[in-house]
Design a protein around this nucleic acid. Structure first.
Lengths: 401, 401
DNA sequence: GCCTTATGTTTTGAGGGAAAACAAAAGGCG
DNA sequence: CGCCTTTTGTTTTCCCTCAAAACATAAGGC
């Protein structure tokens, strides 16, 4: 018997055409660095002006696009009406990490509409209390939002492995949490009706590098993102898309083996990258207390402190071995350092690039490059909001009613 | 100025709807393990019977689908007309490897219509002569094909890194070839008008595991494929798609570092996986001549030969360290062993699964599994043909004229 | 003040799928 | 044997969406 095939691709009908093109128009406007006119949209998409204008009108009516003030630049011809992504659509991004709590709202233009960030040591904390505090921050933030903003979705970034579908945090060693169902905790955290999607911090932070605004591609589309918090998480980004795999277990770069004869790791393996280039490993090797920041370590190393310089040296070597393996497998020679590694990027870059040049097979053809993530702290919060906004870009028709 | 954006997604029109649905119908029939009727297609795709039937009729008229004999099974209702992928469409897959030359033609049903495989030591061979020999095999093969078969495309699998767009073989250490432009060599190799697309052997061989016939998914959709030839190539398969990255440099598992303090590799790095689990490494460790086969090694190890057993032990250990890293990064716990590793799979599995269980972070949740590729030799040839046939599935309208 | 230019809108037409009725080919059953 | 039921496949009618082309609008240039 043939099933109606719940997930199988279903036949395209007239309405599919419509929603597809509606989404295309919205994405085209979002993707542009400068405001487009209806005519620009027609040219960019290959539609006729009539069709493009009709779709734009519909999106403007639904506030998914805004008509901006006319450009007073003196040009020939009828003046165009510039279009911008709708400022009245926003999404909530939350972030829990070992050292901070954050709640941030981004709008469709990628602007921060409001945020609350709180430094706080959450290692070994009680989930209930932490979610309550996050709920308080969120309530404050939402109360301060400009009137008329539609919050269309929410996401929570956590430093660990998640089962997104089930909303379960499987393992977050830095928080000391595991197998934590978040549905109820989150339900108490945000206003009812707003669903919060769980996500891995590194995956979401990588989005802020891949996209500089909802639907607008950043300068790098293929890269490996390293999120150095206490451990080291990672995300592979191919053509602007985070490769998440069939489950949440991708990107555990911190547990790539650097030296099989090395020390035992808490994960059960030996010689994991985290033991050489994790935050604590850096600080311990530099003789600093675990409360010190990576900025302090960097300053010491730059000042010529031998222990700090040695810590950087060792970290760069370990990163070189592990990242060379990853680059050889995924074939992407661009690595973006985030989290605490971003603060050390300038120091790590020269030795790390040298190690990669030697160990990466393709180095002679395309020399591996090390970049550092620029964005604000709690990038996971922004990434979570971006992901929620991507829903709107994927199916604008849903939000027109 | 807004450009007509050559590669940007262009607006969907009525005809897009048509080609999309045409492709959907063809893929639906191909994906099914048993023949579908027009009515089945309608149910599976969610279209009306009228629409599905019209599209099927068009595909049948173009020979992309065949109407099979009616099933004589006594059932109520008007008897259905079973549909099968068109047997008159085929593609040519070629394969050059260190130890063999192969040419094979598959049809849309995934059947081998004809093949020529020749064992031959091609290490350090002259490209011109080798391509000439491959051309001779191909000419023989094509001459023997049943009349009326339309060969719609061709592919060539090579054990090395390729630039598919440019048709350049950048690096194939086992053949001793590098920076080899293949366009002219291939032009002389196959009949004019047939374009041959270059591809990496491991990527293409992985397709034969992901798809058991054109458009029909195999039992595993997410896995890491290891192609043990002389070196070790690999491919990551996610949701049935080979992840090739932005260039051809993905999948070089053989040069993942297993021990940074290990011996120097010809690639410039140290302690690469190939030095422990490459074909030659196995044979050398077992005290066998380099001409011996992996089957002989396996037999010795099973018979209790200590050197052979040690070689397997060491290889499993090295594979464990390297694959654990890959599994931790891509989050896929299924590994399919191909090439010479397939012959050793039964021996490697127990120790390798044990190493992975210890070193893979997700092992407690999803225990890593080791499988061995079943298919015929020269899987790259089949994969190359499958890829060429996928063009037809992607845009059947092109082949209706 | 008229022409040129670019943008935006309206009108008309064609293509493709949906819905529903219709036709066909078998078994079931009195 | 003849009629009903069931399933498949076909035909007809209608609606939706986009294309094409003409038209309207709002500016600068001369």
């Amino acid at each position: 018997m043939i099933q109606p095939s719940t997930d199988a691709p279903s036949g395209a009908r007239q309405s599919t055409l419509r929603t597809t093109n509606l989404a295309l128009v919205l994405r085209t406007v979002c993707a542009s660095a400068r405001p487009l006119s209806r005519s620009d949209v027609a040219v960019a998409t290959g539609m006729t002006r009539a069709t493009a204008a009709r779709l734009v009108d519909e999106l403007v009516a639904g506030a998914l696009l805004d008509e901006a003030e006319r450009d007073p630049l003196p040009r020939r011809g009828r003046p165009a009406t510039p279009l911008l992504p709708g400022a009245r659509f926003g999404a909530l991004g939350l972030h829990i990490d070992a050292g901070l709590l954050a709640a941030r709202v981004l709008d469709l233009r990628g602007r921060v509409v409001g945020e609350r960030v709180e430094q706080r040591d959450l290692r070994g904390s009680d989930p209930t209390g932490t979610f309550a505090r996050l709920g308080a921050l969120t309530a404050e933030l939402l109360a301060d939002l400009p009137a008329g903003l539609r919050v269309v979705g929410a996401g929570l970034a956590v430093p660990g492995v998640v089962d997104e579908a089930a909303g379960v945090l499987l393992r977050a060693p830095n928080l000391g949490w595991s197998d934590l169902g978040t549905a109820e905790l989150l339900h108490a955290c945000v206003p009812g009706g707003l669903e919060v999607v769980l996500g891995n911090e590194a995956d979401l932070a990588a989005r802020t590098v891949a996209d500089e605004a909802p639907g607008r591609a950043g300068p790098h589309r293929d890269f490996l993102y390293l999120s150095g918090q206490i451990g080291i998480g990672g995300a592979v980004v191919l053509d602007g898309q985070v490769v998440t795999g069939s489950s949440g277990w991708a990107g555990e770069v911190g547990h790539v083996c650097v030296d099989p004869g090395g020390p035992a790791c808490s994960c059960g393996s030996t010689g994991c990258l985290e033991l050489y280039a994790g935050r604590h490993a850096f600080l311990r090797a530099a003789g600093l207390p675990l409360e010190a920041t990576s900025g302090e370590l960097a300053e010491l190393a730059r000042a010529g402190d031998p222990a700090a310089a040695g810590a950087v040296e060792t970290g760069a070597w370990a990163l070189g071995v592990a990242l060379a393996g990853v680059v050889n497998v995924v074939g992407i020679p661009t690595v973006v350092l985030g989290g605490h590694l971003a603060e050390l990027a300038d120091l790590l870059r020269p030795p790390l690039e040298e190690h990669l040049a030697r160990r990466v097979l393709s180095a002679r053809w395309r020399r591996p490059r090390i970049l550092s993530a620029q964005g604000p702290s709690a990038a996971g919060a922004s990434g979570a909001a971006l992901r929620a906004l991507d829903q709107v870009l994927a199916d604008p028709a849903r939000w027109l009613g």
